[in-house]
């Protein structure tokens, strides 16, 4: 095993005509890792907060998600209304998250909620989101006890509750938030960044939604 490791690493060093990195060369790469340089600034990721929210909604819709902007009090009602409007079942699988528990689900008598991970025959899931990226209308899901990954993937319809305050400009802003929350060297097991519903272009280069993941994605953007 370690012979294979040395073989590859020594092969690389032989080709690069040097030994193991040392001195200034080593310092340079170490400091680059410690303070990652950012790439060219993307103008549309640099907006004021209100414009970020608008841009997020615009790109999310461009990428085939539907978006509703609501107040916190209206979240449960909007979920029920969305399900009814689309003739979807009122049985939902919900992430066991403190954020979601903060809404008054008891007000929705029709809604039947199972809290836990996703199952193979789930029709609808409700989850929160760690962040939204305005640049591309992308949702960021960090896995953990409060957010099973399977809820992002198995159901036909994924309803996502995203707070306006969690909408950032670009990818780099998300990395910053992840490092802040989990520590620089400790990512959550899975970070899904999700842009619209699942899709495939594998038959005749024509996009069809709902390949393996959700075929429908509804995002509730919650005003503070």
């Amino acid at each position: 095993m370690s012979a294979d490791r040395s073989q590859i690493l020594n092969g690389i060093r032989r080709s690069l005509q040097r030994g193991e990195l040392a001195g200034d060369g080593l310092k340079d790469v170490q400091s680059r890792l410690a303070q990652p340089p950012r790439g060219p600034t993307v103008a549309r990721a640099q907006l004021a907060p209100a414009d970020k929210v608008a841009l997020f909604c615009q790109w999310a819709e461009f990428n085939n998600a539907s978006v509703a902007r609501v107040s916190a009090a209206d979240v449960p009602g909007e979920v029920t209304g969305f399900l009814a409007r689309n003739n979807l079942p009122a049985n939902v699988a919900m992430a066991p998250s403190p954020l979601l528990e903060g809404y008054d689900w008891a007000s929705q008598k029709m809604l039947s909620i199972r809290r836990g991970r996703g199952e193979g025959d789930d029709q609808v899931s409700i989850t929160g989101a760690f962040a939204g990226i305005a640049e591309t209308g992308t949702l960021v899901m960090a896995s953990g006890p409060d957010h099973p990954v399977s809820l992002n993937l198995l159901p036909d319809t994924h309803v996502v509750v995203l707070r306006e305050a969690d909408i950032v400009g670009g990818y780099e802003d998300v990395w910053g938030r992840l490092r802040e929350r989990y520590g620089k060297d400790r990512m959550p097991r899975t970070v899904n960044t999700i842009t619209g519903p699942s899709r495939t272009g594998d038959i005749e280069q024509t996009i069809e939604l709902g390949a393996h993941g959700p075929r429908r994605m509804h995002i509730l953007v919650v005003r503070e």
């Binding site: 790109w59 591309t136 209308g137 896995s143 899975t190 960044t193 899709r199 993941g213």
Partner: peptide
């Protein structure tokens, strides 16, 4: 595409 539908980072096994 502006972004592919799924970009996923996996780090180690289940926590």
């Amino acid at each position: 595409q502006e972004s592919s539908a799924y970009t996923t980072l996996n780090t180690g096994p289940k926590r």
